[in-house]
């Protein structure tokens, strides 16, 4: 029982990441009609926003170490600590939450540049060409990051106050000893909040209503004198921010390297297909569902019955879904069903 609950929780944070990326993918597909293979690169760029902020804040100078008296010893001390003392140390400790503030405008800008600079020329071209050009863009983006930050994963620290584990055993009445990392809980909550925010925006604001109307029937909305194109570009920007934040918050769980986006992209695509191309709710449901399924499949008891199932479960589900219900779990009938 304990194990089941733990696996469920394990699935939630990964599922949250899948859901966030898949939401952006399906939003872009629903509005612009573009299959964006560079969406994983946005996740990766978000993660490297956190890395960049951390590196910037910990820029350090060599200072003489007074604790060593035998010889002249130097140690690296971040400028922030030299200038602000303990306040500086605190700022460094909270670099990850701080980087969110930087990442939002940066990702918005990147998303806007990507849409205006490349994607808009591909609305009318075939899906195959869209896949190919965004695949090329993804390679370019991740290689630029590799040149800048190197090929090795770079660890990013969560604030020390949440670095430990939560005693969820006590809360859930499972008895002591069942612990779960704080940051993973935070990640799940964070993804839930972001998802709620995006849905709220689309569902309860006039702007979002127009976007949804545009997804249904772009031409009619255009005939009503609304510049739907500008709103769709804004949606692309939002999708970029969502993917970027998903990557940024994931850094304490898995240290990012330049290819982390590709790993998530393939899985997120499968998530979108399972949820239903263009269906926002489907992307979220399928994201969490597949995240949880994957973590259940990696239990030893399951692996003993089906060896290797943890490696293929997501793809297997996708194959079955595509064959028996091609529109996906929550896809609208007739949308990309062939």
């Amino acid at each position: 029982m304990d194990a089941l609950v733990l696996q469920l929780l394990n699935g939630l944070d990964k599922g949250g990441a899948y859901a966030l990326i898949a939401l952006g993918l399906t939003l872009v597909f629903g509005t612009l009609g573009v299959v964006n293979f560079a969406h994983g690169a946005l996740f990766m760029l978000g993660a490297f926003c956190a890395v960049a902020v951390q590196q910037l804040l910990t820029l350090s100078a060599q200072v003489k170490d007074p604790s060593v008296t035998f010889f002249e010893a130097f140690k690296e001390v971040p400028y922030l600590e030299i200038w602000f003392g303990d306040a500086g140390t605190a700022i460094i400790a909270w670099s990850l939450p701080l980087s969110i503030l930087i990442a939002i405008p940066v990702m918005l800008l990147i998303g806007w540049a990507m849409e205006r600079g490349l994607i808009r020329f591909f609305y009318k071209r075939s899906h195959a060409e869209q896949i190919l050009v965004t695949f090329g863009l993804a390679i370019v983006l991740q290689e630029i990051i590799r040149i800048w930050f190197g090929a090795n994963p770079i660890p990013v620290a969560a604030p020390p106050i949440v670095s430990g584990s939560a005693d969820i055993g006590d809360w859930l009445g499972l008895g002591p000893g069942v612990v779960y990392p704080w940051w993973r809980l935070i990640y799940f909550l964070f993804s839930a909040i972001i998802l709620a925010a995006v849905f709220g925006f689309l569902q309860f604001t006039t702007y979002g209503m127009v976007v949804r109307a545009g997804m249904r029937d772009r031409d009619t909305v255009g005939l009503l004198g609304i510049n739907i194109q500008r709103r769709f570009t804004a949606v692309f920007g939002i999708a970029a921010v969502v993917a970027g934040l998903a990557g940024l918050m994931y850094t304490p769980i898995v240290p990012p390297n330049y290819s982390i986006g590709m790993d998530f992209l393939v899985l997120s695509f499968v998530v979108v297909v399972v949820g239903g191309m263009g269906s926002l709710g489907g992307a979220v449901v399928a994201g969490f569902l597949l995240g949880i399924l994957q973590s259940f499949a990696s239990m030893n008891e399951v692996k003993a019955i089906f060896p290797g199932i943890d490696q293929i479960i997501i793809y297997l589900v996708a194959v079955i879904i595509l064959l028996v219900r091609p529109r996906g779990l929550m896809g609208r009938a007739g949308v990309m069903e062939s």
Binding site: H127, A128, I131, V270, V273, L322, L323, P326, M336, S338
Partner: peptide
């Protein structure tokens, strides 16, 4: 399946 579904 055809199109991107085939690719996936």
């Amino acid at each position: 399946r055809t199109g991107i579904y085939f690719s996936i």
